[in-house]
Amino acid sequence: MTLAGWLCGLLVAFLGLGAPAVAKDQPPIDDTPRLIGLQHPHWFELSLLDLREDLERVREQGKRALAVYVGMDDCPYCEALFEVNFAEPDIVEYTRRHFNVVGLDVLGSREMTTLEGESMTEREFAVGKGLNFTPAFIFYEPDGTPVFRLRGYHSPYRFRAALEYVADGHYENETFREYLARADPPPRFDPDDLNHQDFFAPKPFALDRSRIPADRPLAVFFEQGECHACDILHTEPLGDEQVLELLDLFEVVQLDMWSEETPVRTPDGRSMTARAWAEDLGLFYAPTLIFFDEAGEEIIRIDSVVRLHRLRSVLEYVLTRGYEDYPTYQRWRMEQGG
């Protein structure tokens, strides 16, 4: 079977863009803060942290791209990447065949040199790239052009899809959202197929904050029917009493990210459907949670697997306006003691 056929089979079976949900969609992750002390896999590049030299090796070896991994110690989601995704031999083989991977610490103090020749610390690099969540990957073509970014943890089948999206150059013709949807076009769902909560505001979705600021931040839940990850969000993190208390301080709306019948007035005052807004935002993962301030500016988004501690922490970050004092969520979180 070809790689493309193998991937298509996985997507059809597991993708969650309308396919029946299965347990493999969401491997168990306990994101309670704890000592983990992760080490990079032995096959990561032994880099001197000069990305120009790392990219030169990519060209010499005929690889498709340089993959810059950004993680951190004591990160349960990084642990899942190493112990679940990289425990699958085909993923490791495919990654090593097409990419050279260089590992960085999102809070690291080591000096590095960027592709532009600038000297800075790993921490400064992560801040400059706006990396709020680990693990994260940034893929660079052999000429140094950044072509794709994957934020947060994604289960093996979606991670494998991201690798093939870059390795086969699909980014040249379509977004990752389009690539996934093409493999398994999402069917139409009745709105009742979504998980409803009492705190979700009813229609109409008049979210415009561009003219008159609101009195509270906004949280938009982009979801879809037949979504195992959405089910877990609603039964686990959204079943926590403290999370519910924090959400009471937000305006909260739920949208079907594929709906062409749901009109929305966006926080910046545009009129479009829920699907068109999701496309405009580049969303490919359900559920995606996007948080906006009182004036309609996006603060942060969670577009990857999320469990209780991360969600609760992000809610606190937004409500305490931590984004005004810290350049990224990660920096704020470390100042709060993890």
Rank of each mutant, 00 (worst) to 15 (best):
R64V: 13
H154T: 10
Y77N: 14
A167V: 02
V70I: 10
T95D: 03
A162H: 00
Y153L: 04
N132W: 10
A162Y: 00
Y153M: 04
E56G: 02
D143A: 05
P135M: 01
L104K: 01
R149F: 07
F133A: 03
G144V: 14
R52N: 11
H40G: 08
H170P: 00
L49E: 06
V147T: 11
E60R: 11
L131V: 14
R57V: 07
R149S: 06
L104C: 13
F159E: 00
G117R: 02
G117A: 14
E116M: 08
W43G: 01
M112V: 13
S47D: 06
N85T: 13
E88D: 08
H42D: 12
F125E: 12
T145G: 09
L107C: 02
A65L: 12
P146W: 03
Y94C: 13
S119E: 12
D90P: 06
G130Y: 08
L131P: 04
P156Q: 05
L48W: 03
R52M: 02
T134L: 09
C75I: 06
V166N: 07
D73P: 01
F137L: 10
D90G: 01
N100E: 12
R160A: 02
D90T: 11
E122V: 01
A167W: 05
A162V: 06
D105P: 01
N85M: 08
V101K: 00
R64N: 06
E141W: 11
E45V: 12
E53W: 09
Y77T: 11
T114R: 08
H40L: 13
E111C: 04
C78A: 12
Y157L: 04
G128E: 15
L49N: 05
E53N: 15
V70Y: 08
L38E: 14
G108Y: 11
C75L: 10
M72R: 05
D168K: 14
H42N: 07
F133V: 07
V68H: 00
L66Q: 01
K129L: 13
Q39H: 02
R96Q: 15
Y140V: 04
E124R: 01
V58E: 04
P89A: 09
N85D: 14
F137M: 07
M72E: 08
L49G: 05
P142Y: 05
E124N: 09
I91K: 10
T95K: 08
E79V: 09
L115M: 05
E93R: 14
F99L: 12
E56K: 08
Y165P: 12
V106W: 11
N173E: 13
L131Q: 10
S109R: 11
Y140C: 09
F125H: 15
L163E: 11
V70R: 06
A167T: 10
E111H: 12
Y165G: 11
M112S: 01
E172G: 07
F148P: 05
V70G: 05
E88H: 05
G130R: 03
M120V: 08
E124A: 05
G130T: 05
R96E: 02
P142N: 02
R110H: 10
V92R: 15
P41A: 08
F86I: 01
T114Q: 02
R151Y: 12
G103V: 00
A67S: 07
N132K: 06
T95H: 02
R160T: 08
